[in-house]
Design a protein around this nucleic acid. Structure first.
Lengths: 126, 126, 126, 126
DNA sequence: GTGGTCTAGACCACC
DNA sequence: GTGGTCTAGACCACG
């Protein structure tokens, strides 16, 4: 069963995106495996304290992206091929890194400065 | 006069936030100095091709944050203390870096992996 | 539900400020409680006969001041701590009174004269 | 010569209105007499550090209200009849008091409460 | 349904 | 000329 218990809702980005993101992260990190069962919409809605429609929206998008399968009246499951996993493993960090690099460059920082910054802050963020 | 000519509007985030971000970046990068004059609402709206009210919104928020000053009937100016500049210089990259590190950690990457990733992608993002 | 039905729009000061003032007064007077629901932007705009954006502006400022909370897709609510209520209860009359006293002193009136004036005019302003 | 040296510009109300108000207050308080000379626009503009046009606007309105006289190339003088003085002495406090009372009533305060408040704060505002 | 953003354009007060 | 307010209405993201 995919766990959402360690997920903390943050404000600033849409809840349904956070849910999607959380699952993708889990897949990329290998903590979520193909075929694993997802909590029901109702259960998850109660756990996170959000509107069931929000869960529904996240699940719908995940299904459209082909990362989960769900049928009416039945449970939902993670359904990813090896290629999808690999793509997430690579694409996800890549996308974030590119965006991050852009921001750093806009503020006039050099590559070495940024690397130093990352290494310095890495320990604090455990 | 603060320049907005090299600013390209992107879609995905509100225009007024992009304008705010652009100025903060400039201050953090040192290309925008305290006391510098800002283009008028009308001028900037024409330059960027957006509605004057959108500029107005960005400027209002910047004034509420104490980074610019504006009075009716008079021009607007950048108004930042040394502390504000230092805070932006440090806080802006810091905040982004921390957020970035969190994401990388959530995907199970190590510090060295991330540093390698950043160094590899840095050259592509010129 | 916070009531705005007894609110009469006056001219001379911006509408959005009047709305803000009205709510603060209500909180200070105790007729508006923490957690109370606010009318929606559309509802209130129809009730007062002003543009929804004007309501929006008032609500945005109130949220920035931490007196109400609002999330997209959800209703807005009053959200004040005891300290905020106490501050409003005391600060609001205090600020107005100090300003009033300054004016009276600038015109050379004595305290007893002013008290007499207030007592005389109080009955007329029902 | 009418003194404007003890006048402190406040933000929140238009400068030209503050200038007008300052003179009216002086007349009502008796510190400004009929026939007294006014500082030149240029002098006053330098003293207060505001745009000469702003002074000009204040003086024009005061002249339209018949409280001062000024001719091109000549000095300006206060010019008030006894009736005008009496009207100011009475009307000015009255108007302010009425407005003040309205605000206090909107916050649910009683007459005695307000009188107490005024008496308490009066000493602090020296 | 909700609130948030944006456009188009008017009017005002102010300097 | 400047910035500030307001209207009218569209569109979007969110729950």
């Amino acid at each position: 069963m995919v766990s959402f218990e360690d997920m903390k809702l943050e404000e600033g980005s849409p809840i349904y995106l956070q849910i999607i993101h959380h699952l993708k992260m889990g897949i990329a990190a290998g903590t979520v495996q193909d075929g694993e069962e997802l909590p029901s919409r109702r259960t998850l809605s109660a756990l996170l304290g959000v509107n069931p429609n929000t869960i529904q929206k996240a699940f719908r998008i995940l299904e459209e992206e082909g990362l989960i399968v769900s049928h009416v009246g039945a449970k939902s499951f993670v359904s990813v091929t090896r290629e999808q996993v690999q793509r997430l493993e690579q694409q996800l960090p890549d996308t974030h890194a590119r965006q991050f690099i852009k921001q750093m460059q806009a503020m006039g920082l050099s590559c070495t400065q940024v690397v130093g910054l990352v290494e310095r802050l890495w320990k604090e963020e455990v």
